[in-house]
Design a protein around this nucleic acid. Structure first.
Lengths: 344, 344
DNA sequence: GGCGAAATCCAAAGCGGTTTGGATGACCGG
DNA sequence: CCGGTCATCCAAACCGCTTTGGATTTCGCC
C-alpha cells in the first residue's frame, strides 16, 4: 500500500537475500514455491515495485520505444499519427514497455535519434512517414538501433522491417470503381507527394486510368497537407471549370469532408452529381460507419497498423538475429453514399 | 562520433577522475576552464553521452513526465489530446525531459498512476479531461506525485495547479453574439457533459439566455462525443422540426463541420439561413483561418495550453514547496462566414 | 551410511552515473 | 618561512536492481 520500499528493505523484512527476493518476483525457478508465495505476499503488503531506472541500468534494456516526431511531419500527419500511437501504445503496455515521444525541431531530428542511441533512452524506434528520399534508416542502422517503418522506404524494402498498407492497389481499385461507374474526369486530391505513401497512391490512380487508355489530367491532380480547406478549396476551384470533374479521389477523410462542403456550396449533390471516394484511416473521431457509410472509401485501420508495428519491433528486439519482416495490409473497398453513376 | 563510450573510459582517456569529468560536463564551478575545455572536446570526439538510466538512478529524478490516457478518454479527446501533447512535448524537450505516454484500459488507470509513482517512472503527470466527479487528483496527492490539470476539477480549484480556458465565458459571449443577431432558437451541441469543460460551456450558454429572459429548449440541447456524424445527425434531426433552430452553438470544429453538412443537405445556407458558432481548438489539421474564417468561433489554442501546462508542471517539480498556481486563458471570439442575422 | 545430484539460498560484483568528504598543491599575507 | 585559503582534483560511497559463482542443505539411491 504505502509506497517507498525498496528491494533491500523488503528482503530484510523477509529474512531473505535480495537475490532470492528478486528471483522470486521475477519467476526464476531456483526458489521454492513456498518462498515465492511469502515474498509475493510481503511485496504486495508493502507495495513494493522495482525502481525502473535501477532495473534498466542493471539489465541494460531501456524497456522503452521511442517515437520522434519533427514538428512539420507532426503537423502534417496529425490525427493519423495519434491513432497509430494509440495502437502501438496498447501493445507496449501489454509487454511492459514504455512509449516515449520526442517532439523536435525539424533540424534536430537526427540529434534526437543519436541521443536515444547514445544515452540508451529506448531499445528501438519507429519511423513515421517515410519520404521518397528517406535517410533515417541509414542512420539507425549505423547506430544499431532496431526500428520498424510505418510505411515503406523506397529501395530499402527488403532490408528493413516495415508495415504498410497497399496504397497503390487501394487507389487502383478505387479508381476502377469510379471508371466502372462511368466517370472519366476524375480528380485526385493526394497527400504530399514527397511522401512515399502519396506517390504510391498516385501510381495506383494513374495505372488504373492507363489500363483503360485514359491519361490523367494534370489540372485535376493536386497534392498538399490533408486539411479540410485543402479539400474544399481545390474542389471548389475544379468544379468551376468549364469541364469539371465528376468524381474525386481523396487521400483523407478530412479533405473529403472539405470536398463535400464544396460540392454542397456549388449546389451539387454528393453521390449524385459528384462522386467522392476517400481513403479512410478509421480514425476514432471520424467514424464513417453506419448501415451505409457516408463516404465510399478504401479503409485500413491505422490503429491496427500501430499495434502490429509495435509487435514487429518488440519481436526484433527480443530476437535481434532475425531477418527483417514486413506486413502488407490490404485496404477494404467499402461502398458508401458518396458514389454513384457518372451523370449523363 | 562512434558511440559506446562511458564515463570511465572517457576519464581514463583524459587521465582525470570520473568525478572531475562529470563535474566538467555538468557545469560545476570546481573545475578549471582549461580542464573543462579539454573534457568537452574529448567527449565530443568520442561521442560520449551519459547513460540516462544511470543518471536517473543516481540523481533520483526520472526526468520524465507521464501522460496516462485511458482508451475511452482517448477516443473521446482524440485530436485535441494530440495537439496538447505536441505543445507539452516542445516544452519537455527544451528542458531535457522525456514524455512518456501510457495507453491503458479504463479500469487500469489507477494502476498506471501507482506504477508511475512506485517504480519512479516519472517526476510528474498531467491530468487530462477532468470529469465532474473527478478523483484522480486525490490519488496523486496521496502518492505525492506532482501534477497539473488540463481543465479544472470542480471543488478543487484552489488546491490544485491547472490550466484552463474560460469555457463558461466563451460560450456566454458566443451565445450573446447570436442573440444580438436576433436568433432566439439556438441549439447547443455540447461535448459529453460529465466532463467539466462541457458543463461549464452549457452554463455559459444558459446564463446568456437567462440574462435575456429566455429559457433553453431541452429539445435543442445535446451532448455526446464530438464526432462529425454527431453534428450532422443532430442538426439534421433538429432542422426537420416544425420550429427548427436558426443557429447552432457547437463544441468542436469537427462536429461543426457535420452541422454544416446537414445544413447543406437540407438545402439551406450556412451563415444565411442557419448560423453556426463553434469552439475552435486551433488544431493544426483543421485550420479555420484565412481572411474570413469559415466558421465564426471561440478560439483558444490547445497546443499553447499544452506548452503552458508543461511549464507549470516543470516549475512545480523544480520548486516543490511552491503554492499551486493556475492559468486561466480567455478564448477569442472571431467572426467568420458562418454567422449572420436571424432570418425573418 | 555415504555420495552425487538437485534444490535453495546468498554474498558480492557489476550496471554507469552523481556526490560526499577529503587530499594536494599553489598562492598569499604576515 | 609558515599557516591558512583557494582552486583543483580524486577515491570511494551510493543509487536500487540483476546476476554470477558459489555455499549449504536435502534427498534419492546404491
Amino acid at each position: 500500500m504505502s509506497n517507498g520500499v525498496n528491494l533491500k528493505e523488503l528482503s530484510q523484512r523477509l529474512n531473505l537475500s535480495q537475490t532470492t527476493v528478486s528471483r522470486a518476483l521475477n519467476g526464476y525457478p531456483e526458489v521454492s514455491e513456498e518462498t515465492r508465495r511469502r515474498v509475493s505476499e510481503m511485496a504486495e503488503k508493502l507495495g513494493y515495485a522495482p525502481n525502473s531506472q535501477a532495473r534498466r541500468l542493471a539489465t541494460g534494456r531501456a524497456m522503452a520505444i521511442g517515437h520522434v516526431i519533427p514538428r512539420s511531419i507532426h503537423e502534417m500527419m496529425n490525427p493519423i499519427f495519434l491513432e497509430f500511437i494509440a495502437g502501438a501504445g496498447e501493445t507496449y503496455s501489454n509487454h511492459g514497455y514504455d512509449m516515449i515521444i520526442s517532439v523536435v525541431d525539424d533540424d534536430h531530428e537526427e540529434d534526437a535519434y543519436r541521443q536515444i542511441s547514445s544515452r540508451k533512452k529506448a531499445d528501438g524506434v519507429i519511423i513515421h512517414g517515410p519520404a521518397n528520399d528517406e535517410h533515417r534508416h541509414k542512420l539507425l542502422k549505423e547506430l544499431k538501433l532496431p526500428f520498424v517503418v510505418h510505411g515503406r522506404i523506397p529501395g530499402a524494402e527488403s532490408e528493413t522491417s516495415w508495415i504498410d498498407m497497399n496504397n497503390r492497389r487501394a487507389f487502383e481499385r478505387a479508381t476502377n470503381l469510379l471508371l466502372d461507374l462511368g466517370h472519366t474526369r476524375i480528380a485526385l486530391l493526394n497527400g504530399l507527394e514527397h511522401m512515399d505513401f502519396a506517390r504510391r497512391r498516385r501510381k495506383g490512380f494513374e495505372e488504373a486510368l492507363a489500363a483503360r487508355g485514359l491519361a490523367p489530367d494534370p489540372e485535376l491532380m493536386r497534392c498538399a497537407d490533408m486539411t479540410e480547406p485543402y479539400g474544399c478549396d481545390s474542389a471548389m476551384e475544379m468544379l468551376r471549370r468549364d469541364t469539371p470533374p465528376t468524381a474525386f479521389l481523396v487521400s483523407s477523410m478530412i479533405s473529403a469532408i472539405g470536398v463535400a462542403r464544396a460540392v454542397g456550396q456549388c449546389g451539387l449533390r454528393t453521390g449524385k452529381d459528384v462522386s467522392i471516394i476517400t481513403h479512410d484511416d478509421a480514425l476514432s473521431f471520424l467514424p464513417n460507419s453506419g448501415e451505409v457509410p457516408i463516404f465510399t472509401c478504401t479503409r485500413s485501420s491505422v490503429r491496427y497498423a500501430g499495434q502490429k508495428a509495435a509487435e514487429l519491433l518488440l519481436n526484433m528486439i527480443a530476437n535481434p538475429a532475425a531477418e527483417p519482416t514486413s506486413l502488407h495490409l490490404d485496404a477494404e473497398l467499402i461502398i458508401g453514399q458518396s458514389t454513384g453513376p457518372a451523370p449523363a
